[in-house]
């Protein structure tokens, strides 16, 4: 499988300096992403799941080299992007694209949506000048939008339609790898399904590879082949989507799962939840030991002092000192009994 890796992150970290005082001296760092290893295979959909503040958006941007990592390396199809010069980036960038969270702010309000999509063709010199308008029409077809909408301004479109424009823009450069950053979070539930199905169909049609960033494990379970769970900048669990969603091995995953409501009132009312207590610690000062121990109901002394490492298991990997003892309990929580 190794030769099939499209995107590889090895030991990737992204620290943002925290400046304080009049002199703006560096007073520490927010470690948004901290030592992440992740391989994304060609044609695969990897879900990146976590709460806000977990660093999942930052990691997505680092993989696309929209942000430069402060540690580790990112390779795309064998090309090392760390410290790559403008020449290399210019060649690679069209092959990886992003779909943004907020369809209201990710489209330029002063440009028609057609012009927004066409710009991606223009700046990358894709196709002959004369054929580009036709290409825009084809892209609109691809995302199941009426071609006549090219003339519309963003505010005249519904949220779902705007997100389709955002996808069309991302697909304009014929990318191989697409990062969808909470691409459905701002949409109505009924529209979320439309967009997720579109993403699914587009993968089949175009052979795309996705990193699907979301806080919704149920959606990740539905769309993704594998799920990686991120907590305070670190991957705490990774594995096939069905395994992670049905047999979580990390208490944090179990907590995320038990927060997803079941659309089944009697079961939902009867359910025992793993409710997280306390607030997410600041990524500027992560707690010592396991970064989850302040909120973990199963934390013991070893968790407070020693940071667990991500260890490979049968089909995935987990970073918890107690994952073996907890397996049965976490499974019970997940099944809602």
């Amino acid at each position: 499988m190794t030769d099939d890796v499209l995107v590889r992150a090895s030991g990737v970290g992204k620290h943002f300096p925290v400046r304080r005082g009049v002199l703006r001296r560096t007073a520490g760092a927010v470690r948004a992403v901290d030592g992440v290893d992740l391989d994304i295979h060609r044609g695969e959909i990897v879900g990146l799941v976590g709460e806000s503040g977990s660093g999942k958006s930052t990691l997505g941007r680092v993989l696309l080299r929209l942000l430069e990592p402060t540690a580790g390396a990112v390779t795309f199809d064998g090309t090392d992007l760390t410290g790559a010069d403008r020449h290399v980036l210019r060649r690679v960038r069209p092959r990886m694209q992003m779909v943004f969270q907020d369809p209201y702010s990710s489209l330029n309000p002063w440009m028609t949506v057609g012009a927004t999509v066409r710009e991606a063709l223009d700046v990358n010199g894709i196709g002959a000048q004369a054929g580009r308008d036709r290409r825009v029409g084809e892209l609109f077809d691809l995302v199941r939008l009426d071609r006549r909408m090219v003339e519309r301004m963003p505010h005249e479109l519904s949220g779902g339609q705007r997100q389709r424009v955002g996808i069309a823009r991302a697909l304009a450069t014929e990318p191989e790898f697409v990062v969808a950053d909470e691409a459905i979070a701002a949409l109505d539930v009924s529209v979320q399904a439309q967009i997720v199905n579109l993403l699914r169909d587009l993968r089949a049609e175009l052979g795309l590879t996705y990193l699907f960033i979301t806080h919704d494990l149920a959606m990740a379970r539905y769309l993704c082949d594998r799920i990686a769970v991120l907590q305070l900048g670190r991957i705490v669990e990774i594995g096939p989507a069905a395994d992670v969603a049905e047999r979580p091995r990390h208490p944090y995953t179990a907590a995320l799962l038990s927060a997803v409501p079941l659309p089944d009132p009697p079961r939902e009312r009867a359910r025992t939840r793993l409710v997280l207590s306390g607030e997410l610690p600041s990524p500027a000062a992560p707690p010592p030991g396991c970064r989850f121990h302040t909120r973990c109901p199963f934390a013991t002394d070893v968790c407070r002092t020693q940071e667990p490492v991500l260890t490979s298991e049968s089909s995935g990997a987990v970073a918890c000192h107690h994952h073996n003892e907890l397996a049965a309990e976490l499974h019970a929580i997940t099944t809602g009994s």
């Binding site: 960038r93 069209p94 702010s105 710009e119 823009r169």
Partner: peptide, 24 residues
């Protein structure tokens, strides 16, 4: 976000400054 989006599709700084931000 639309500025970041434009940058991600490869739009240069001058064009972003003039075409994307100036109208605003």
């Amino acid at each position: 976000e639309f500025v970041e989006a434009a940058r991600g599709t490869g739009v240069g700084h001058l064009r972003i400054a003039v075409r994307h931000i100036l109208p605003g």
